[in-house]
Design a protein around this nucleic acid. Sequence first.
DNA 1: CTGAATCCTTTAAGATACTG
DNA 2: CAGTATCTTAAAGGATTCAG
Lengths: 249, 249
Amino acid sequence: MAIDPESGPPLSTLTTDAEREDVREVADILARKWSLEVLTQLQQDGPYRFNELKRQLGVTPKVLTDCLRELTETGLVERTVHSESPPHVEYDLAERGYELQQIAAEMAAWTGAADAAPTVLVVDAAVPTNVRFSGWLSEGYTVERVSEIAHLSGEQLERADVVLCHHHQLLDDRTDLLDRLEDGSTAAGVVHVTDHRQSLATHDRAVELVEPVLKDELLQAVRTLLPDGAGPERAESSSATDRREERSR
Amino acid sequence: MAIDPESGPPLSTLTTDAEREDVREVADILARKWSLEVLTQLQQDGPYRFNELKRQLGVTPKVLTDCLRELTETGLVERTVHSESPPHVEYDLAERGYELQQIAAEMAAWTGAADAAPTVLVVDAAVPTNVRFSGWLSEGYTVERVSEIAHLSGEQLERADVVLCHHHQLLDDRTDLLDRLEDGSTAAGVVHVTDHRQSLATHDRAVELVEPVLKDELLQAVRTLLPDGAGPERAESSSATDRREERSR
DNA sequence: CTGAATCCTTTAAGATACTG
DNA sequence: CAGTATCTTAAAGGATTCAG
C-alpha cells in the first residue's frame, strides 16, 4: 500500500459493517441527482416553498417530492405546514443538513486539491525504481501508478498531466492510447526513461531521460512538460475550478 | 468531523455546479455496495489477488470486476500484473484510496455522533416556543423538528429517544404512529406540554408538563425518559455501535 | 399550490455459465 | 487464475397527466 510513513498515522479505519453501512447510507443521499442541489439552494436562500424550489431547480414534481421526502425523513430538511390561508408548505435546511454540507465541502476540497496538483502517472517502473520516482514526486504532485501501459484506461490518461514510463514498454503491444501518447495528441506530456539513449522524443511534449536519472533531472523534465511552466510551487495559485476548465477545453 | 455550531462559521459552501458534481461522483463510489468493502479489505490485509478477494467478500466475479475496474480507473486502487509464472494479478490500495477512507471515516463518525447523543423530536411547537425548547436542548441532544405530528414519518420516530409535543396535537387526526406514541409501544418516551393540567400521562414513558415550562423542568423530564438515566453527560461514554445495537433489538 | 398516479428508460446487482 | 458473456430483477430518474 502506498502510504508515506512520515505522516503520523491518523489511520481511522472503518472496521465494522455497521460503520460501512452508515457511510453507504450517507453517500447514497449525496450521490442522488438532486439532494445536494436542494440542500445548497435551501442554505443559500432560506426557506422555499415546493413550487418555488421546483422552478428554481427545473425538476419534475415527482422527483422533487421523492427527494424532499427522503431529506425530511433523514432529518436533513425541515418541512413546515403553514395553515393560514392560503395554506402552504415550507422546506428549510435542518441542523443536520448544514452539517452534511460541511462534509460535502470537504469532499469537494479533496477532489479539488488533487485536481490542483499536477498529476504524474508512473507507468510500470520496476518496484525499486517506482518507489524512487514516486518519492521524488510526492511533494507537489499527485502520483498514480499503473503496472502495464497496455492496461492504462482513458480516464487515467485524462487525469494525467505527465506520463512517466520506461521506454521498453512503448515497444510492446500497441494500443490506441499508446499511439496517442507517442504522437503527442494527448494533453499529457511524456517522460521516457531508457537505459541507453535512443532518441525517442518524437514530439515536443516528450522528453527522454537516460538512467541513471537524478532527482533534479527528473523534476526539471516534468516541469518543462507542464502547461506554461506551472509547477508544484505555482500549483497553489491555480484553483481547482481553473484547472478543470483548462482540461475540459 | 466534530462540527460544533458555536464555533465561528467555517461555512464552506458548495457554490459551483462543478463542486457539486465532484461530490456526487465521489459519493456515488462510496454508495456502491462493494466499494468500501474492497477498500477496507485492501487496507487491512495488504494486496489481494482477484479470487482471494472474491472469496473473502463473497461476491460474484462480474460485480467484483466492475467494482475493481471503477476503483482502478478512478485511481483509488492499483492493479499490478505480475508476469512471473504462474502469472497473477494483484490489487492494492492507492494513496487516493487511503485518503478517501479517511473521509469515509469522518462520515461514519458524523452519523455515529448523532446516534450517540439522545435525539429529541420537537413536534409542532409554535415558533417562539420551538426555538426556546430547541435552545435548551441543543447541548447534549440531537434536536429535530417536525411541524405536524400527522406528517411524522416512521424513520423519524425511530431515531427519536424522546418526542416533545403540544398536547392538543394529540387530539387531532389519528394515525397509527400517534397511537403507538400514546400506548407506549414505541421506544421513544413522550413529553406532553399542555396549557392546563389534564392528566394525560397514559403510560410510564409519558410525562406531562404544564406551561409555563422551565428549562430545568424540561431537561429533567427528558432525562427521566431516557433509558436507565442515560443523559447528555453520559452520552459520550456509549459508543455509536452500542446505541445501534440497543435500538435494533 | 402541493403533490399523487402512471408509464418509460437506465443502471446496479446478482445468478449462471463459459473462456484464455 | 482472472476474468467475460448473458440474463433477470429492482430501484432511480424522468415525462406526463390527474387530484385534493
